[in-house]
Protein backbone atom coordinates (compact mmCIF):
# COMPACT_ATOMS: atom_id res chain seq x y z
CA UNK A 1 0.00 0.00 0.00
CA UNK A 2 1.43 3.43 -0.92
CA UNK A 3 2.48 5.66 1.97
CA UNK A 4 -0.02 7.93 3.69
CA UNK A 5 0.51 11.56 2.61
CA UNK A 6 -2.36 13.51 4.10
CA UNK A 7 -4.61 12.56 6.97
CA UNK A 8 -7.60 14.35 8.47
CA UNK A 9 -8.39 13.14 11.98
CA UNK A 10 -11.86 13.96 13.24
CA UNK A 11 -11.67 17.55 12.14
CA UNK A 12 -14.33 20.09 12.97
CA UNK A 13 -14.76 23.56 11.48
CA UNK A 14 -17.30 26.08 12.73
CA UNK A 15 -18.57 29.33 11.27
CA UNK A 16 -19.68 31.08 14.43
CA UNK A 17 -21.72 28.47 16.29
CA UNK A 18 -22.68 26.66 13.11
CA UNK A 19 -20.65 23.52 12.34
CA UNK A 20 -19.54 23.48 8.69
CA UNK A 21 -17.60 20.22 8.99
CA UNK A 22 -18.11 17.73 11.81
CA UNK A 23 -16.00 14.78 12.88
CA UNK A 24 -14.47 14.23 9.44
CA UNK A 25 -11.67 11.72 9.02
CA UNK A 26 -10.10 10.73 5.73
CA UNK A 27 -6.75 9.91 4.27
CA UNK A 28 -4.92 10.39 1.03
CA UNK A 29 -2.12 8.08 -0.06
CA UNK A 30 0.64 8.75 -2.57
CA UNK A 31 -0.66 8.78 -6.13
CA UNK A 32 -4.32 8.58 -5.15
CA UNK A 33 -7.31 10.58 -6.28
CA UNK A 34 -9.85 10.91 -3.49
CA UNK A 35 -13.18 12.47 -4.33
CA UNK A 36 -15.32 14.57 -2.02
CA UNK A 37 -18.87 15.08 -3.26
CA UNK A 38 -22.13 16.25 -1.75
CA UNK A 39 -24.80 18.92 -2.01
CA UNK A 40 -24.09 22.66 -1.70
CA UNK A 41 -23.21 23.66 1.84
CA UNK A 42 -22.18 20.13 2.81
CA UNK A 43 -18.74 21.33 3.89
CA UNK A 44 -16.63 20.24 0.91
CA UNK A 45 -14.91 23.56 0.18
CA UNK A 46 -14.58 24.23 3.91
CA UNK A 47 -12.63 20.98 4.23
CA UNK A 48 -10.18 22.13 1.55
CA UNK A 49 -9.91 25.57 3.18
CA UNK A 50 -9.16 23.94 6.52
CA UNK A 51 -6.35 21.89 4.97
CA UNK A 52 -4.94 25.05 3.34
CA UNK A 53 -5.14 26.97 6.62
CA UNK A 54 -7.69 29.50 5.37
CA UNK A 55 -10.14 28.61 8.16
CA UNK A 56 -9.19 27.45 11.67
CA UNK A 57 -9.97 24.02 13.06
CA UNK A 58 -12.32 23.88 16.03
CA UNK A 59 -11.22 20.32 16.77
CA UNK A 60 -9.23 17.46 15.31
CA UNK A 61 -5.95 17.43 13.49
CA UNK A 62 -4.55 17.50 9.97
CA UNK A 63 -1.33 15.59 9.35
CA UNK A 64 1.05 15.66 6.41
CA UNK A 65 3.47 12.73 6.35
CA UNK A 66 2.49 11.85 9.92
CA UNK A 67 3.35 15.33 11.17
CA UNK A 68 0.81 17.96 12.24
CA UNK A 69 0.15 20.46 9.46
CA UNK A 70 -0.11 23.95 10.94
CA UNK A 71 0.65 27.59 10.15
CA UNK A 72 -0.48 30.20 7.67
CA UNK A 73 -1.61 29.32 4.12
CA UNK A 74 1.82 30.30 2.78
CA UNK A 75 3.54 27.90 5.20
CA UNK A 76 1.27 25.07 4.11
CA UNK A 77 1.89 25.89 0.44
CA UNK A 78 5.60 25.61 1.16
CA UNK A 79 5.03 22.33 2.98
CA UNK A 80 3.65 20.83 -0.24
CA UNK A 81 -0.08 21.58 -0.31
CA UNK A 82 -1.54 23.36 -3.36
CA UNK A 83 -5.08 24.63 -3.75
CA UNK A 84 -6.89 25.29 -7.01
CA UNK A 85 -9.79 27.32 -5.62
CA UNK A 86 -13.35 27.35 -6.82
CA UNK A 87 -13.73 30.04 -9.47
CA UNK A 88 -10.03 29.60 -10.37
CA UNK A 89 -8.88 32.92 -8.91
CA UNK A 90 -6.25 33.49 -11.53
CA UNK A 91 -4.73 36.98 -11.57
CA UNK A 92 -6.70 38.39 -14.48
CA UNK A 93 -4.58 41.53 -14.93
CA UNK A 94 -1.29 39.60 -15.02
CA UNK A 95 0.03 37.58 -17.94
CA UNK A 96 -0.16 33.80 -18.14
CA UNK A 97 3.60 33.62 -17.56
CA UNK A 98 3.38 35.89 -14.50
CA UNK A 99 0.60 33.73 -13.05
CA UNK A 100 2.80 30.70 -13.53
CA UNK A 101 5.82 32.41 -11.96
CA UNK A 102 3.74 33.21 -8.87
CA UNK A 103 3.25 29.48 -8.48
CA UNK A 104 7.00 29.19 -7.96
CA UNK A 105 6.67 31.17 -4.69
CA UNK A 106 5.87 27.97 -2.79
CA UNK A 107 9.00 26.12 -3.91
CA UNK A 108 11.71 25.68 -1.36
CA UNK A 109 14.33 25.04 -4.02
CA UNK A 110 14.89 26.32 -7.53
CA UNK A 111 16.29 22.94 -8.62
CA UNK A 112 14.26 21.26 -11.30
CA UNK A 113 12.16 24.31 -12.20
CA UNK A 114 12.88 23.83 -15.93
CA UNK A 115 11.79 20.17 -15.82
CA UNK A 116 8.61 21.00 -13.95
CA UNK A 117 7.84 23.84 -16.32
CA UNK A 118 8.25 21.43 -19.24
CA UNK A 119 6.00 18.90 -17.46
CA UNK A 120 3.30 21.52 -16.83
CA UNK A 121 3.37 22.94 -20.36
CA UNK A 122 3.30 19.36 -21.64
CA UNK A 123 0.10 18.75 -19.67
CA UNK A 124 -1.41 22.06 -20.73
CA UNK A 125 0.11 23.15 -24.08
CA UNK A 126 -2.10 26.26 -24.13
CA UNK A 127 -0.08 27.68 -21.21
CA UNK A 128 3.08 27.71 -23.30
CA UNK A 129 1.27 28.95 -26.38
CA UNK A 130 -0.36 31.95 -24.68
CA UNK A 131 2.36 32.72 -22.16
CA UNK A 132 2.43 36.46 -22.94
CA UNK A 133 -1.35 36.94 -22.99
CA UNK A 134 -3.15 38.69 -20.18
CA UNK A 135 -4.75 35.87 -18.21
CA UNK A 136 -8.15 37.57 -18.05
CA UNK A 137 -8.52 37.18 -21.82
CA UNK A 138 -8.36 33.35 -21.68
CA UNK A 139 -11.51 31.23 -21.97
CA UNK A 140 -12.95 29.55 -18.88
CA UNK A 141 -11.38 26.20 -19.71
CA UNK A 142 -8.01 27.79 -20.39
CA UNK A 143 -8.18 29.71 -17.11
CA UNK A 144 -8.87 26.45 -15.28
CA UNK A 145 -5.83 24.91 -16.94
CA UNK A 146 -3.75 27.89 -15.90
CA UNK A 147 -4.99 27.62 -12.30
CA UNK A 148 -3.99 23.94 -12.17
CA UNK A 149 -0.67 24.60 -13.91
CA UNK A 150 0.09 27.41 -11.44
CA UNK A 151 -0.53 25.00 -8.56
CA UNK A 152 1.50 22.18 -10.11
CA UNK A 153 4.60 24.23 -10.89
CA UNK A 154 5.23 24.39 -7.14
CA UNK A 155 5.64 20.58 -7.30
CA UNK A 156 3.14 19.94 -4.53
CA UNK A 157 2.63 16.56 -2.90
CA UNK A 158 -1.06 17.20 -2.43
CA UNK A 159 -3.28 18.96 -4.94
CA UNK A 160 -6.60 20.24 -3.61
CA UNK A 161 -9.08 20.90 -6.41
CA UNK A 162 -12.29 22.76 -5.68
CA UNK A 163 -14.90 22.08 -8.35
CA UNK A 164 -12.57 22.28 -11.33
CA UNK A 165 -15.36 21.31 -13.76
CA UNK A 166 -17.61 24.22 -12.78
CA UNK A 167 -18.78 26.13 -15.84
CA UNK A 168 -16.88 23.97 -18.33
CA UNK A 169 -18.32 22.25 -21.42
CA UNK A 170 -18.76 18.43 -21.05
CA UNK A 171 -16.04 17.60 -23.56
CA UNK A 172 -13.54 19.82 -21.75
CA UNK A 173 -14.52 18.24 -18.43
CA UNK A 174 -13.65 14.78 -19.77
CA UNK A 175 -10.24 16.00 -20.94
CA UNK A 176 -9.74 17.63 -17.55
CA UNK A 177 -10.45 14.39 -15.69
CA UNK A 178 -8.08 12.55 -17.99
CA UNK A 179 -5.38 15.10 -17.20
CA UNK A 180 -6.02 14.62 -13.48
CA UNK A 181 -5.24 10.93 -13.88
CA UNK A 182 -1.99 11.82 -15.65
CA UNK A 183 -1.09 14.20 -12.82
CA UNK A 184 -1.86 11.47 -10.26
CA UNK A 185 0.38 9.08 -12.21
CA UNK A 186 3.12 11.70 -11.84
CA UNK A 187 3.05 11.03 -8.08
CA UNK A 188 0.79 13.88 -6.93
CA UNK A 189 -2.03 12.96 -4.56
CA UNK A 190 -5.30 14.67 -5.41
CA UNK A 191 -8.24 15.57 -3.21
CA UNK A 192 -11.02 16.44 -5.62
CA UNK A 193 -14.13 18.33 -4.56
CA UNK A 194 -16.83 18.04 -7.20
CA UNK A 195 -20.52 18.49 -7.89
CA UNK A 196 -20.48 15.88 -10.67
CA UNK A 197 -21.02 12.80 -8.52
CA UNK A 198 -21.01 9.91 -10.99
CA UNK A 199 -18.03 11.23 -12.94
CA UNK A 200 -16.04 11.67 -9.72
CA UNK A 201 -16.90 8.21 -8.37
CA UNK A 202 -15.65 6.69 -11.63
CA UNK A 203 -12.43 8.72 -11.71
CA UNK A 204 -11.37 8.62 -8.05
CA UNK A 205 -9.87 5.74 -6.10
CA UNK A 206 -12.36 6.47 -3.33
CA UNK A 207 -15.12 9.04 -3.10
CA UNK A 208 -16.54 10.30 0.16
CA UNK A 209 -20.02 11.73 0.24
CA UNK A 210 -20.51 14.65 2.60
CA UNK A 211 -23.91 15.90 3.63
CA UNK A 212 -24.85 18.30 6.40
CA UNK A 213 -21.22 18.68 7.49
CA UNK A 214 -20.72 14.93 8.00
CA UNK A 215 -19.33 12.00 6.04
CA UNK A 216 -22.22 9.76 5.00
CA UNK A 217 -20.87 7.25 2.53
CA UNK A 218 -17.69 6.10 0.81
CA UNK A 219 -17.81 4.82 -2.76
CA UNK A 220 -15.34 3.17 -5.13
CA UNK A 221 -15.31 2.99 -8.95
CA UNK A 222 -17.02 -0.41 -8.68
CA UNK A 223 -20.08 1.34 -7.25
CA UNK A 224 -20.32 3.33 -10.49
CA UNK A 225 -20.81 0.19 -12.60
CA UNK A 226 -24.55 0.24 -11.97
CA UNK A 227 -25.65 3.76 -12.79
CA UNK A 228 -29.11 3.41 -11.31
CA UNK A 229 -27.91 1.97 -8.02
CA UNK A 230 -25.32 4.73 -7.74
CA UNK A 231 -27.96 7.40 -8.28
CA UNK A 232 -30.09 5.81 -5.56
CA UNK A 233 -27.15 5.62 -3.16
CA UNK A 234 -26.16 9.23 -3.85
CA UNK A 235 -29.71 10.51 -3.50
CA UNK A 236 -30.11 8.71 -0.19
CA UNK A 237 -26.79 10.10 1.09
CA UNK A 238 -27.49 13.64 -0.14
CA UNK A 239 -30.86 13.70 1.57
CA UNK A 240 -29.64 12.14 4.80
Amino acid sequence: MPEKVLELREIEVRYGRLPAVRNLSLELRRGEIVGLIGPNGAGKSTTLHAIMGLVPLAAGEIRLHERPLRGQPEDRARAGIALVPEGRHIFAALTVEENLRLGLSARRSRDGVAEDRAWVTGLFPVIGEYSHRVAGTLSGGQQQQLAIARALIARPEVLLLDEPSLGLAPLIVETLFETLRTIRDGGVSILLVEQRGALTVRAADRTHVLSNAELRLTLTPRDAEHAERLTEQLTAAYLS
Binding site: M52, L54, Q72, P73, E74, A77, R78, A82, L83, P85, H89, F91, A92, A93, L94, L102, G103, S105, A106, R107, R150, A151, A154
Partner: peptide, 11 residues
Protein backbone atom coordinates in the same frame (compact mmCIF):
# COMPACT_ATOMS: atom_id res chain seq x y z
CA UNK B 1 -5.11 42.02 -6.62
CA UNK B 2 -5.91 39.11 -4.27
CA UNK B 3 -3.83 38.62 -1.13
CA UNK B 4 -5.65 35.46 -0.05
CA UNK B 5 -4.99 33.62 -3.29
CA UNK B 6 -1.40 34.89 -3.37
CA UNK B 7 -0.86 33.42 0.10
CA UNK B 8 -2.17 30.02 -0.95
CA UNK B 9 0.50 30.08 -3.65
CA UNK B 10 3.22 30.54 -1.04
CA UNK B 11 3.55 34.34 -1.19
Amino acid sequence: ADLRTARTLGV
